[in-house]
Design a protein around this nucleic acid. Sequence first.
DNA 1: TTGCGTGCAAAGGTTTTGCATGGCA
DNA 2: TGCCATGCAAAACCTTTGCACGCAA
Lengths: 148, 148
Amino acid sequence: MKHESGYNTKQKEKLLDYLIANKSRHTNVSEISAYLAAEGTPVGTATIYRQLDRLVENGIVRKYAFDGKTGACYQYIEDEQQCHTHFHLKCLSCGRLIHLDCDHLAGISEHIAEHHGFIIDSSQTVFYGMCSDCAKAKKEAASANAEE
Amino acid sequence: MKHESGYNTKQKEKLLDYLIANKSRHTNVSEISAYLAAEGTPVGTATIYRQLDRLVENGIVRKYAFDGKTGACYQYIEDEQQCHTHFHLKCLSCGRLIHLDCDHLAGISEHIAEHHGFIIDSSQTVFYGMCSDCAKAKKEAASANAEE
DNA sequence: TTGCGTGCAAAGGTTTTGCATGGCA
DNA sequence: TGCCATGCAAAACCTTTGCACGCAA
């Protein structure tokens, strides 16, 4: 099985521990770095990136690249199976990222795979739009500004 | 109607010209910058970003953010109407952008709007994954590397 | 003329790289 | 012991921001 290649160092262990402990959500490098430092095992940024890269390559961790400036996010992959039913919604107004576990949506992947010959990587796919809060706000602004 | 707001400058014009001329594919800032410079109308990077931002806001250009380090990509949106039932598939392997007109997919927006209170902007939303060609190629590579 | 758009340069943030050292196997 | 991983710092990169000047309206 594709597992931790290379040596076992405590940095790598701690890093993986953290990822696993937070597998329900995604983190980023600065969070990881801050945690490890606070935890008593400060790890250099370069090392974190290097380990993360390897973990991603080995399929142990998933990398999300929502936005160039925010920095990439990483998340431990618990099980292969959870991948295809999990999408993300990102609000373009407030920037909120919403995790979406929905069986109905899972059908999308299948539909597209079958009918369009395209395999969606839902971990990389983000639906952009507006969350209910922002939609409300914009609706009001728009009605005041209607021109067409 | 949401069009080029603000003044008409030759920089903006050239930039838009380039985007329209390359509407079949996506470009990035360095490409644009290089082109404009070679073309005899060098435009400052800051200006390109600023104009691009505005174009994106006005719905004239679509912005893709694949990866932090690659930089964002931009693409001219040909027609307004194509947007709301129209999703995009982008192959992460070969970079191909596939336009997807499909009634079934249109239901996605409604489902998410109703059940998740989120309004998808399909013109900004891109499904990332793998096209059939690349999937085939990868499948072979993966089976050769199977360890479990 | 007014004020927006532009350009330059500097700042900001994330990620990568080089090199010497330290630790795993 | 040999080699990989680490750390630090510098570099590279993309993007944003400040400020003065030029140009569109």
